[in-house]
Design a protein around this nucleic acid. Structure first.
Length: 895
DNA sequence: GAGTCGACTTGCGGCTAAGAAC
DNA sequence: GTTCTTAGCCGCAAGTCGACTC
């Protein structure tokens, strides 16, 4: 049981002393200890399993059995609450054997850096403080056989190939205001290839694979509703505790309303689907249900031939689901497309904490004027500190691409002019020369770089000392790391893509801008700036933020201070996310049958929903919310424009659009004929800029998805497809070998997911130079190889080797030695070729994003345990902390 | 039901320390 | 020992989606 924060001030004092969060390092004995402890205490994860309708295992997980786990040792701070039981992971069903193969030209075989011992420790996350009686509830996890022992069969084969190129938002090199040097941009055309284009979807006649035994007995997510401890009376906040929600911010003026796409009227408000299956019992041998997206892509058109599940997929709602969705059912009755089921989000609703103590936020230091004068029409200009500060913000960006963006400069000048005043000598940006300030800044940077290691260390320690008290919060008696406790410093807004507000001044945030959220009984954080005070102090335990302020660029939006990713609150919500995605596995068959059936629906809304869901499922597209005009012009599935999707007969769809972060998505996909025809129909009579899905928006789509599975939204498909792809690839491709080889398998799977999700990165500036160097080395080694082969031939004839390039005689080696050298050199060349290929292959692929956000960590942990790969080879220290809740997963876990 | 608000999650790029290569 | 390269942390922008209001 956690120690209640009875003496909060003392706890906060203690917080200053500790520099590490509560962690546990488990030794085998500790594991045993955990086990016994956990017999009396229900872990958070178990609770959540139950909330999710999944019984927790009644057999403890085999903690401490794997090498990885044995490494860990239990440790706890004397000043922090005692550790609680580790999380027992549910056993899970295996996905059925699916086949697909990915063509990949290379793999980044480099293992991640190992982490220090302390990084092996994982934070104790189980913080369940509920009564023992509740905790000991019998949990009957359905157990499904693992197919770990089964031979890995080759499954589908998916041919991925590059199509064509380019990154969207990579503008040409900026010309520099103030004659600053430019950073040349890579011209390498291949650099621009979006990941999504790197594979081509081909159709293939159906291979049939077995469907995994689905867990018919698994409770729907909605079961949480009944079990949600948070909603239980003892956890319910008192009326005084749950405070008013944030009032509508008055900042927004009427004039700020933006042109929006007209909302759609509900097309088919009929109730015929009110009984639409939550979980249909169609357990037909449909082969694609658990096939990872990449595998299915290969088979896309084959389903044309298949009866698209002509079964009646409308099933009665399970009683459990009915229980949950009392509220939503009303809505559902009215319309199958209206906002419906409000699935209780495990952590999304209700009380999040009982006690919360923290020290507020830390502000950036006040501006220190440097006095370096910029030039206007060639003459030095005097600026006030405030004016100079903004000029400096611009000057330090002279070597960025923003200098190529007129909008950036225009917005900057508009805001700077307000500070300069009407009559200031500076009237036009054109005549400004910021070079002196830029150079001063470069020198400062250089000075910092040149500091000795000791000086740097001292500086770091000083900073840490100042920040330490802000780094921690105590949530329900448990010390947790705070994520972003630093208030954003003033600067120029760096919007991505062609953001209409780029270059605008982000003003300095003051205490009077900040709303603090803290426990009712906790001491209110002292305002760190003398003479100033917080805007407001709240005690809202239904939210997880510790502080927020209005975004100075979009005052109607907010910047929040949250707990770090390693916190229990975040971990809990992470786990729920993955559990929801796992649940989709049980529904996916019916969902796919439903949308396939509706491809030809006469109801246009239904038809659009079907096609959109298909694209989201098949291509892992984002939902695509409406956007205001003062945001970058990017789209997702529901907001695709006619010009973004080009049908190429007989059944290819060419996608080309800017997605999140203005990252270009380019892909050519072979789709089912019915989808192809539907897209042609949706385009008919429309202009390029018109909405492809004119009868659809995200709320309508999500409302429909919720009718198919409780809590299902568009984004769940991304998580599901990413995780199931990883699980499947790891299971199929891991065939032994040493740790390094297994890590390569993991990276390959990770890369596949990154491609599916279109996670791109900018090609490093030195990429071409690196490639050039590698090529040179390879050529050099090839020359050496040739010489060695000549020498060998001569040696075999008893002749001495030829002289080397310098004309000097070489060592006279015997044929055996020469053969060994040849083998070594050949291996070296091969390795370099592989490295080169990998480097080229991954130059635009970002592996980290999917690992952090989309891949259920339990897949990774279980795989590591099964194959004796140290988890540190896959997860760095941060990920180990973030995924602490997943560390005790059973080795047989499958997504 | 549409529009907006609010609370989160997701995502990329910059900076920097650590490690590899020379 | 120095330079180069990269992993990882951090900042903050940009999404998603449920709740609320009118």
């Amino acid at each position: 049981m956690a120690v209640e924060a009875c003496d909060k001030q003392k706890l906060m004092d203690d917080m200053d002393d500790d520099d590490e969060p509560l962690v546990f390092k488990r030794s085998s004995s500790a594991a045993k200890q955990n086990q016994s402890v956990s017999e009396t205490k229900k872990s958070l994860s178990q609770k959540h399993d139950r909330q999710l309708g999944k019984p927790a295992p009644d057999i403890r997980s085999q903690n401490g059995q794997s090498t990885m786990v044995e490494k860990s040792k239990m440790a706890s701070s004397s000043k922090t609450p005692p550790v609680r039981s580790p999380l027992a992971s549910p056993k899970s069903s295996n996905s059925s054997a699916k086949s697909f193969a990915v063509k990949s030209s290379g793999v980044n075989s480099k293992p991640s850096t190992s982490v220090a011992d302390e990084s092996n420790s994982v934070k104790q996350q189980s913080r369940d403080k509920r009564p023992l009686t509740e905790a000991t509830a019998e949990l009957n996890e359905e157990s499904e056989d693992s197919d770990d022992d089964k031979p890995l069969t080759a499954r589908l084969s998916a041919g991925f190939s590059k199509i064509n190129s380019n990154h969207a938002n990579k503008g040409p090199n900026a010309s520099i205001l103030g004659q600053k040097p430019k950073i040349p941009k890579s011209e390498d055309s291949d650099d621009e290839i979006p990941l999504s284009s790197k594979f081509q979807v081909k159709s293939n006649a159906g291979d049939s694979s077995k469907k995994s035994p689905t867990s018919g007995g698994r409770k729907p997510l909605s079961a949480k509703c009944d079990h949600n401890g948070l909603g239980s009376p003892e956890r319910k906040p008192s009326s005084s505790t749950i405070l008013k929600k944030r009032p509508a911010d008055g900042v927004k003026s009427a004039g700020e309303s933006h042109l929006k796409r007209p909302k759609l009227s509900d097309a088919s408000a009929s109730n015929k689907n009110k009984e639409t299956s939550i979980k249909a019992e169609l357990k037909e041998e449909d082969d694609e249900d658990h096939v990872p997206i990449s595998a299915r892509m290969k088979k896309s058109t084959s389903s044309d031939k298949k009866p698209s599940s002509s079964k009646n997929i409308t099933k009665p709602v399970s009683s459990l689901s009915k229980k949950i969705n009392k509220k939503s059912k009303k809505v559902t009755k009215k319309s199958e497309y209206s906002k419906s089921s409000k699935v209780p989000p495990g952590s999304g609703e209700g009380q999040k904490w009982t006690t919360l103590v923290h020290n507020g936020v830390i502000f950036p230091p006040p501006y220190k004027p440097h006095g370096v004068k910029m030039l206007y029409k060639g003459k030095p200009v005097d600026l006030t500190p405030e004016q100079e500060e903004v000029a400096t913000m611009f000057a330090v960006m002279l070597d960025t691409d923003y200098m190529n963006k007129p909008k950036f400069k225009e917005n900057f000048m508009d805001d700077w002019r307000k500070i300069l005043g009407k009559n200031h000598v500076i009237q036009s940006l054109e005549h400004c020369n910021f070079t002196p300030i830029y150079e001063w800044h470069q020198k400062e940077k250089e000075k910092k770089k040149q500091m000795s290691a000791d000086e740097k260390k001292a500086l770091k320690e000083e900073k840490l000392k100042q920040e330490d008290k802000y780094m921690w919060a105590i949530v329900d008696g448990v010390k947790e790391k705070v994520g972003n406790f630093r208030v954003e410093p003033p600067g120029l807004f760096r919007g991505r893509g062609e953001h209409p507000k780029m270059g605008k001044l982000k003003k300095r945030i003051r205490p009077s801008d900040i709303v603090i959220n803290i426990g009712k009984d906790a001491p209110i954080p002292e305002c760190p700036i003398p003479g100033e005070s917080w805007k407001e102090v709240r005690h809202d335990n239904t939210v997880t933020w510790l502080a927020y302020w209005n975004d100075p660029i979009n005052p109607k939006e907010f910047k929040y201070v949250f707990l770090a990713a390693s916190s229990a609150l975040k971990g809990q919500s992470d786990k729920e996310k993955y559990e929801k995605a796992r649940l989709l596995k049980d529904y996916i068959q019916d969902i796919r049958a439903t949308y396939t059936k509706n491809f030809t629906s006469k109801d246009p809304t239904k038809k659009q929903i079907a096609v959109a869901t298909y694209l989201i499922d098949k291509l892992a597209l984002r939902a695509g919310n409406e956007k205001d005009d003062d945001e970058a012009d990017t789209v997702g599935c529901c907001t695709l424009k006619v010009e973004n999707v080009e049908p190429v007969p007989p059944n290819i769809l060419k996608f080309d659009f800017l997605g999140k972060d203005s990252i270009r998505y380019q892909n050519e996909v072979e789709v089912e004929t019915a989808v192809f025809r539907a897209i042609q129909e949706f385009r008919r009579g429309k202009k390029g800029g018109d909405d492809l899905f004119d009868k659809l928006d995200t709320s309508k789509l999500n409302a429909h998805l919720k009718e198919l599975m409780p809590g299902l939204t568009a984004k769940v498909f991304r998580t599901y497809n990413a995780s199931i792809t990883l699980d499947d690839m790891l299971s199929r491709e891991t065939k032994g070998g040493d740790v390094a080889e297994k890590v390569v398998v993991y990276q390959l799977a990770n890369k596949e997911v990154a491609i599916i999700c279109n996670h791109q990165r900018t090609v490093s500036k030195s990429h071409s130079a690196q490639m050039l160097r590698l090529n040179e080395k390879i050529e050099e080694l090839k020359g050496v190889l040739e010489e060695l082969q000549t020498d060998l031939a001569r040696a075999k004839k008893g002749k001495p080797p030829l002289k080397n390039a310098d004309g000097k005689p070489k060592r006279n080696l015997n044929p055996d030695a020469l053969e060994r050298k040849i083998a070594q050199t050949t291996a070296k060349i091969e390795k370099m070729e592989r490295d080169k290929e990998t480097k080229e292959d991954l130059k635009t692929v970002a592996l980290g994003t999917s690992k952090i956000n989309y891949l259920d960590p339990r897949i990774t942990v279980a795989w590591c345990k099964r194959h004796e790969v140290p988890i540190e080879k896959i997860f760095n220290k941060s990920l180990l902390a973030k995924f602490a809740w997943a560390m005790d997963v059973d080795p047989s876990f499958r997504f």
